[in-house]
Design a protein around this nucleic acid. Structure first.
Length: 287
DNA sequence: AAGACGAAAGTGGTTGA
DNA sequence: TCAACAACTTTCGTCTT
């Protein structure tokens, strides 16, 4: 089981048997050592994905204190005023309203993408920081949230491409990329370059390739990197062509078209990459 | 007939003056 | 800000299996 991605993967052939699985861990919630002792089963964790971090307190309408006693008239008036100001302040600040819309969009997108909760939280943090630095102004909430989700995926090494996000977003890849870059610049986030290796399991399961082939593709990629022919190249294209070569070597040939479709690149890119790699690593492919 | 190949022209993004 | 540039895409005609 890959709990981070919520995928059940066959350890022999690497095929993804199921995804978006249910966490089968203990059902009591525990977010600190103290809570672990109590084994509470109720209540939500303090989460950053709700606009007020899930920590809102409502002043109840019943004019009773914690012991159920009626309040004195003076106290009652005081509580009434508190209640009024609470309701006014809660959603009326513009950033609160913004966050409210943003977290709804975050919820929608992340459930469609099926990303795990910690990545969602990361995206929420990024968005909050962006909001504090006034980066949202001039952009729609939606596009910034989607860009934050992409950034969070990159940060947590979830192999999603911009195209994946684009599919569930109303935004274009270009706008998303622009806002993503803006986030990186202004928030000074360091995002590790995504390695082609990360895409291998994903493409392989789409192509029904065996574990052996995946291993082989991985070593091909590592050798290619040593030769220095991978810099500046599209990681998905590299992963695709390495898989193409590996599949042929392992007798599981796939057509360039199949590979290209799975990796969302063109045949031409697969072709160019694999020619380069085969030449540099002296791999003879009998066609 | 399908797959592989490669040339040519176009696109979006980076870089360096 | 603009031009040069590298990587990738699209398109299309040709060759191979």
């Amino acid at each position: 089981m890959d709990y981070v991605r919520g995928e059940q993967i066959c350890s022999r052939c690497g095929i993804v048997l199921s995804f978006r699985t249910i966490d089968q861990g203990p059902e009591w919630r525990a977010f600190s050592a103290e809570e672990l002792q109590k084994r509470d089963r109720i209540g939500s964790p303090p989460t950053l994905t709700i606009h007020d971090k899930g920590l809102s307190t409502l002043i109840d309408r019943q004019n009773k204190d914690a012991f159920g006693k009626q309040l004195t008239p003076k106290r009652k008036a005081q509580i009434y005023r508190l209640r009024k100001w609470q309701s006014r302040s809660r959603v009326c600040s513009s950033s609160e309203r913004n966050l409210r819309a943003a977290m709804a969009e975050l919820e929608r997108l992340s459930s469609q993408l099926g990303i795990p909760r910690d990545v969602k939280e990361t995206a929420a943090i990024l968005y909050r920081q962006a909001l504090e630095k006034k980066l949202i102004r001039g952009h729609s909430i939606e596009v910034m949230v989607d860009a934050a989700v992409y950034a969070a995926c990159r940060k947590r090494k979830i192999p999603h491409t911009l195209e994946d996000i684009e599919r569930f977003s109303r935004m274009t890849r270009r706008e998303l990329g622009r806002c993503y870059r803006l986030l990186l610049d202004k928030l000074e986030i360091i995002i590790p370059l995504i390695s082609p290796l990360e895409f291998i399991p994903r493409f392989s399961s789409a192509l029904m390739l065996s574990e052996r082939t995946q291993q082989r593709a991985a070593t091909i990629l590592l050798l290619a990197r040593e030769k220095g022919i991978t810099v500046g190249k599209d990681p998905t294209g590299l992963a695709a062509s390495a898989l193409y070569i590996a599949a042929i070597l392992e007798g599981e040939r796939r057509t360039q078209r199949e590979i290209a479709t799975a990796a969302q690149v063109t045949e031409v890119t697969v072709r160019n990459r694999y020619k380069e790699i085969a030449q540099n690593l002296n791999i003879q492919l009998k066609i």
